[in-house]
């Protein structure tokens, strides 16, 4: 629990998943959907959140051979939302600024992974250390 400005962010519920195979992607997406439905998130925001989650989990499999995801129901003030934390122990991203540019990709993807994903969510944070791994945290507020 931490203070963000005047309102406090509280974690109401959480669950952790390990992503090792591509089949885990669909299962994980279904879990995210269950959490989003439970807090009454609308279909458009649900779709944006799940699509963002799908992009990030795919990155994790492609670049880091998998990793761990934490799903949390959070509340701040009157707002409820879902926070997802993707943590891998892959090669890390040497230049995050470059990776966040539209059109940049080192893999076989279309290069809209990270910036595209960021546009779909309310909050986006990425931390990466070369040789240690990458952690991406996204938040989608119910009405955000």
């Amino acid at each position: 629990m931490r203070h963000t400005g005047t309102t406090m962010l509280v974690v109401l519920n959480k669950d952790a998943y390990s992503i090792q195979r591509e089949q885990d992607v669909i299962l994980f997406r279904n879990r995210v959907k269950e959490f989003a439905v439970r807090i009454g998130m609308g279909v458009v925001n649900q779709t944006k959140l799940i699509t963002a989650a799908s992009e990030l989990v795919r990155n994790m499999l492609r670049y880091a051979n998998g990793g761990d995801v934490l799903i949390e129901v959070i509340t701040r003030g009157r707002e409820n939302g879902i926070r997802l934390t993707f943590k891998d122990q892959g090669p890390g991203i040497p230049d995050i600024k470059q990776a966040m540019q539209d059109g940049f990709s080192t893999g076989r993807s279309l290069g809209l992974g990270l910036p595209g994903t960021k546009r779909l969510v309310s909050e986006f944070d990425i931390k990466s250390t070369v040789g240690v791994g990458t952690t991406v945290t996204i938040v989608k507020w119910k009405n955000g």
Binding site: V44, T47, K48, T51, D102, L110, R119
Partner: peptide
């Protein structure tokens, strides 16, 4: 919702 998401995704 898929159309909206696809365009925002780029």
């Amino acid at each position: 919702a898929v159309a909206i998401t696809l365009i925002e995704l780029g």
